[in-house]
């Protein structure tokens, strides 16, 4: 089953948003977000990352280079057809957005980075997470999968029940995290962290204070290290990891749209040098 989607307008929009889903997820988790952005004038695209979908066997064989290659290709293809291409991603998807911005610093119109996952240090991590470096660097990583469990990255109990049912059907994503996948994410994270300074496009970071998978340290690190003169960090106080589905989803949507509208009107790569904003960090 293909979960990819492309929401285009009949009259071609000059602005596109490329969305990336999270680790072991699928474009399904971005569909509502995509529809929302599309309804406000943006052409929106989301494709399933290599190894993702609903089969664990596939993701075990996939490396972070495969994810990067796919992300670069998708971006290059859109960049040929659109004047401005914005990037937005959740979890692993947010890391891929950063990777693209590092490789094509003058081509990305802006990034909306949601629950950026550079470190796996959220409160849901099991008691033995301190042994993870050993598990990841030995053969054990091929034998262990970390089960997706309560609260499924969602604070809202009603939404959590729905997600749980969908995951049990297993046709919208995987119900566990293979260690190999976590290993690849950590390797990717190391690569990305080295070059965060190369990023100078506008960036909006949204992260939850109570993120169960990755603490706000990841978003704060990106916020500190990127060279973008126009950067914003929003810390949510009533959500977990899946900020697009949780209690403050409307607030997330609104801020994402505001960010896109602000930068799609006046975007010009040379403009970045003229802005003297020091960025802002807010908690809501």
């Amino acid at each position: 089953m293909t979960l990819d989607f492309e929401f285009k307008h009949e009259i071609k929009s000059p602005k596109a948003v490329l969305l990336f889903h999270g680790m072991t997820g699928s474009p399904f988790e971005l569909k509502k977000y995509g529809q929302f952005l599309h309804s406000h004038g943006y052409d929106v695209f989301a494709y399933c990352l290599p190894g993702h979908g609903d089969k664990v066997d596939e993701i075990i064989k996939t490396t972070y280079s495969d994810w990067l290659k796919a992300a670069y290709q998708d971006f290059e293809r859109l960049k040929m057809n659109y004047e401005q291409v914005f990037l937005s991603g959740l979890c692993l998807g947010a890391v891929l957005c950063l990777a693209i911005a590092e490789k094509y610093p003058n081509s990305v119109a802006g990034i909306i980075s949601l629950s950026t996952t550079l470190f796996l240090d959220g409160w849901r991590m099991p008691w033995y997470s301190f042994l993870m470096p050993i598990g990841l660097s030995t053969i054990l990583r091929f034998y262990y999968t970390y089960p997706e469990c309560e609260p499924y990255g969602i604070k809202n109990i009603k939404t959590r029940r729905i997600i749980k049912k969908l995951l049990e059907k297993s046709d919208v994503g995987m119900d566990n995290f293979p260690m190999t996948c976590i290993y690849e994410l950590i390797l990717l994270s190391r690569v990305i962290r080295k070059d965060l300074k190369k990023i100078h496009c506008p960036i909006l970071l949204i992260h939850s204070n109570e993120d169960d998978l990755t603490s706000k340290k990841s978003a704060q690190l990106v916020y500190k290290q990127v060279s973008s003169p126009d950067k914003t960090l929003i810390i949510l106080d009533n959500s977990y990891h899946m900020v697009l589905y949780d209690n403050q989803k409307d607030y997330v949507y609104k801020n994402a749209l505001d960010f896109l509208n602000t930068h799609s009107k006046s975007f010009n790569t040379s403009d970045f040098d003229d802005k003297n904003s020091d960025g802002r960090a807010v908690t809501c």
């Binding site: 099991p126 008691w127 033995y128 042994l131 050993i134 598990g135 030995t138 054990l140 034998y143 262990y144 999968t145 970390y146 089960p147 469990c149 566990n176």
Partner: peptide, 22 residues
């Protein structure tokens, strides 16, 4: 154990093997 037991058991067991290897 691996791939045959409940995820919680597999997780705890894998952690024990990791600790022993360390």
């Amino acid at each position: 154990i691996f791939g045959r037991q409940k995820p919680v058991i597999v997780g705890n067991y894998a952690a024990s093997v990791g600790a022993i290897l360390g």
